[in-house]
């Protein structure tokens, strides 16, 4: 299939290896010093992006990234991904985070997709991560699809293979480390990606140079998005309370440790 476009809905999240402390001001939860934390592209959305880039390379279509986040953080994340694959950014400026409601995010994402000049949805796949490292709900993309009238949807996708007639094969993760194999007659469709099989592309300065010429203006034009949802109330946010009393076992032989582990494994 030629000129198949891919729109990747990609959020940004605090670097998952940072220490995260919740704070709550009134009924608004958030992360302590959230704007100080380095952010990254949501890891699953990252996989979606790299898979999308490979796909449009094959079809000759165009790759769009649609994202909602604080402008300064989006700008920071773009510095780390825009050298990887060529794309066009469509962004909205909002304090989107793990406590934002996915419905509000979906509505805004769908609006941004609708704003893409000349995009023919019937020749487009909507990609994203199947969950996020922030909200981890796995609900946003379905709603983006519903708003845009796309009812062929796949979640936990690890592989897509295009056929010449525009149909494609999808492997979705299911329980037990297995994959569900489906075939769809063609675009449009929604694919929420798990990790796929592609490694992260290397940084290519040439791609970065070209991307940034359109990304910076897109960021400058990013309009504020309203994510307020008065019907949702967080009553509390907290770190796990349970702290285990860790027993340190040292200065005993490997044999003794092995036996202890065996006894533990066998115990009920």
């Amino acid at each position: 299939m030629t000129n198949l476009n891919v729109v990747v809905c990609a959020g940004i999240v605090p670097d998952p290896l940072q220490t995260l402390d919740p704070v709550q001001t009134g009924e608004k939860p958030g992360l302590r010093n959230e704007m100080m934390l380095p952010h990254v592209l949501d890891p699953w959305a990252g996989h979606a992006l790299y898979e999308a880039a490979e796909l449009v390379k094959e079809t000759g279509g165009k790759l769009y990234v649609v994202s909602i986040g604080p402008k300064a953080k989006l700008q920071q994340v773009m510095m780390t991904i825009a050298q990887k694959v060529p794309f066009q950014l469509i962004a909205a400026d909002a304090a989107a985070g793990g406590f934002s409601d996915s419905k509000q995010i979906a509505v805004q994402l769908a609006e941004l997709v609708k704003q893409i000049d000349g995009l023919d949805l019937s020749n487009t796949l909507l990609f994203g991560g199947w969950e996020s490292a922030s909200r981890g709900a796995g609900t946003t993309l379905q709603m983006v699809g519903e708003i845009l009238g796309v009812t062929d949807q796949f979640q936990g996708v690890d592989k897509i293979s295009l056929n010449d007639d525009g149909s494609f094969k999808v492997l979705e993760r299911i329980e037990g480390g297995k994959h569900l194999h489906s075939s769809c007659s063609g675009a449009p469709a929604v694919l929420g990606w798990a990790t796929g099989y592609l490694p992260e592309p290397p940084n290519n300065p040439q791609i970065g140079m070209t991307n940034m010429r359109t990304i910076m203006p897109a960021l400058q034009q990013a309009k504020p998005a309203d994510l307020e949802n008065p019907e949702l109330t967080f009553t509390a946010v907290e770190l796990p309370k349970q702290k285990r009393d860790t027993k340190i076992v040292k200065d005993i032989s490997a044999d003794e440790i092995a036996q202890e582990i065996i006894d533990w494994i066998k115990s009920k």
Binding site: G98, A133, R135, F234, V237, L239
Partner: peptide, 20 residues
Amino acid sequence: LVVSRWHYRQRILAHLKRSQ
């Protein structure tokens, strides 16, 4: 009715309610 769920990859526990 208040429900609980984990955010940020099981690192923060949130309790929430909805009117809708």
